[in-house]
Design a protein around this nucleic acid. Sequence first.
DNA 1: GTATTTTTATAATGATCGTTCTATATAAGA
DNA 2: TCTTATATAGAACGATCATTATAAAAATAC
Lengths: 179, 179
Amino acid sequence: MSKKKQDLIVHGEQLFYNHGFHAIGLKRVIKEANVALMTLYNHFDSKEDLILEVLKNREEKYFSMLKSHVRNSKIQSIYSLADAHIDWIRKHNKNGCMFLRAKEEFSYNDDHEIVQYVNEHKRSLLAFFEELDFNYSEAIQLVLLFEGATALSETLNVDDVEIAFIHSIKSMDLHMRGE
Amino acid sequence: MSKKKQDLIVHGEQLFYNHGFHAIGLKRVIKEANVALMTLYNHFDSKEDLILEVLKNREEKYFSMLKSHVRNSKIQSIYSLADAHIDWIRKHNKNGCMFLRAKEEFSYNDDHEIVQYVNEHKRSLLAFFEELDFNYSEAIQLVLLFEGATALSETLNVDDVEIAFIHSIKSMDLHMRGE
DNA sequence: GTATTTTTATAATGATCGTTCTATATAAGA
DNA sequence: TCTTATATAGAACGATCATTATAAAAATAC
């Protein structure tokens, strides 16, 4: 991938995530990426096309991070994944889930490519847990806890969120074993 | 409160919630509320002032709903509150938490009145659970589950979310009793 | 019924938006 | 060296944005 294109994606991700998709204009993106406007339109069809590529790039980073934390047993995996998710929040997610934010901002049209992409992304997360041999109900519970940790970190101290998050995972773990 | 002002708040809430704060212009709000532009500016200082009043109105509705579901014991209360929260999601929250969305869209400035208000709102929710005699750790866990249910309902079937949500509450309940 | 307040429609402000066009400059490959 | 692809700056497009100004119409109060 072209260096300029990469710059646009990297700085686009930062700006869109920190300020919102509608709030950030392309002028700001090209300024931050140090790229000419026509270079942006050379690499991307439109603003929404850029946003879509930013999201795809972020999804790839997140899932490859998750996959690197899978352990031998499913129980070991969830604690490892929970730690990794909190680390991710600390580094990249102080402002909520970027995918949900994208869906929210473009939800005026259910058929919108971005909306559909986010729906697929969340289904992928659910499928990821199911592939670790959690059943559907358990997988949903895990996604609920992951979403909760992300959302809660927007307004509360991440250290406190981490404690509650791990505590909830533990409760779920014990509950599962008890059955 | 004036009928016109009420209409602006009601329709503003719907539009801002469904499409985003930056994505919706005042023209759209007054059109939907059937009110003249100058009437809007007669009742509100600015767009952000309208947004703030919309949020305050929504907070009042949500908390009064929650309070009406408090039961005699804390354990009875959390199941009742969990049901009520899922009902609220079904009725008003298919697009995520409006308060978090507001914070996200105005987070370019931490000192922003809207950002501070949302922080206070979330602290109020935490305090609400603490007043039900849950300790700080338990209260955070509950808020995490509530946030998780709201976020998850954006992309997954609410019926499925409800099952996972109640299941998580149950796990937490049992874990608390076990100590 | 007169006075006062509220609501209305319309237009202008200056700014920014996404997108397109033109034309020039730079760099790489043959 | 000639060609081709890529990047640049700058202007223009039509549209929309929040906000303010003006002045007439409607509703309300005394």
